[in-house]
Design a binder for these strands. Structure first.
Lengths: 210, 210
DNA sequence: TGATATTGTAAATAAGTATATAAAATTAGT
DNA sequence: ACTAATTTTATATACTTATTTACAATATCA
């Protein structure tokens, strides 16, 4: 019943594996069977060494003549990235951003599913938005537990973040993706990822002006 | 007329400076004058050394007794992060995501302004969406030049990315923030930042299951 | 005056990427 | 059929970027 990963991969490698898999899938659509490291690299703005190194880390080998077997490689990446049962995801705050994420994500990954959303707007509660049922924020604790949700995406206004996060942590949530500008702190064992569009744009502006 | 930065800061430091500034601004709202490195660190889930090191890199000094002068520090960060004229930003693809980014960003930063958006949907073209004029995608080249836009945010469907990027690069755009799953390649001198929600969620799922 | 709290920074460690090179397979030339 | 050149994977080594640890210097307070 244990689901421990066989590999302890660097974060950046995990990110690239996620992208390799999708790029490779497109490639299959084009009828290709094999791919060389430099081809994959070219499609992703990387060096071929980077690609080979990543694949080395997951213990996948290619051939000097034909490169890597695409279908096979996709499966190997899947065996590392996907858990057996998959993860169930909730969107906290079904505004523009929550909706666009949900729509965008829908059906993209087999083992990851957005199964619930929460909001405090009575007009949204009880309806389905972007194909996902929207519940009252106050019911969060029980529903997350009952629905066996392990990952939450926070897309509420920044002021509400701290409170929402606190509630989430009480449910025993395992991963949080925070899209607000309010930095969060989570206890050991909970995995946190933060993305802030203002930071991204300011960083761009800084480097654009160097 | 040159606008070269005095400092060559690491990317991660730039990201944190962006966040420091906003956290500090909130802090002023609470009537505080000074702040210690460990306080700032605590608000951002960092160590105090990290904070002091960042401030050291920008040459800002505090006092052992009172810590850092908030207002002063905000200004120093501004002098490093903001260019004199500021940057003008365009959103390419005014769908849910483009709209939510625009709404969220509006008025948040003085020196960064979203001044135009582009779409191919006739219902959107010619209107203002989220307070920003929406133009025909075909007019992109001239408008970006005329409006003196230096940064573009790509929020079109993934299939359209490559073409849009190509057009953008022809305008001489200086920075691109790509939100699609389609990896981009840009020439030397153009600064590229990419964020992909699928990757983020897959990464979370991976680490949640370790 | 001695203990404590803080900044400032050097040095060590860790994470991530790129360079260098070996080994294997293929291709081209003779 | 043999050999040399080429292409590719695999991986060790070096380098670069980022974070943490260690500690010196200074100010404050009991």
């Amino acid at each position: 019943m244990s689901n421990k990963k066989k590999f302890d991969l660097p974060g950046k490698t995990v990110e690239r594996l996620s992208k390799y898999r999708r790029v490779l899938f497109d490639r299959i659509g084009e009828g290709k069977i094999n791919i060389y490291s430099h081809e994959l690299a070219g499609m992703m703005n990387l060096t071929s060494v980077q690609v080979r190194r990543d694949l080395m880390l997951i213990g996948y080998s290619g051939s000097q003549s034909t490169g890597y077997a695409i279908k096979d490689l996709i499966e190997v990446i899947g065996s590392i990235m996907d858990s057996n049962e998959g993860e169930r995801i909730a969107i906290i705050g079904m505004g523009d951003l929550g909706r666009s994420i949900t729509n965008y994500f829908k059906g993209k990954r087999e083992k990851l599913e957005i199964v619930a959303s929460f909001d405090n707007n009575p007009k949204k509660i009880g309806r389905k938005i972007a194909g996902v049922p929207c519940y009252d924020e106050n019911e969060m604790t029980e529903i997350i537990k009952n629905e066996n949700i392990s990952i939450a995406v926070i897309t509420v206004p920044s002021e509400a973040t701290k409170l929402v996060a606190q509630k989430l942590l009480q449910t025993g949530i395992k991963g949080i993706l925070n899209f607000t500008s309010e930095p969060l702190t989570v206890p050991e064992g909970v995995y946190l990822e933060e993305y802030d569009i203002i930071t991204s744009l300011e960083k761009l502006a800084y480097f654009v002006n160097k």
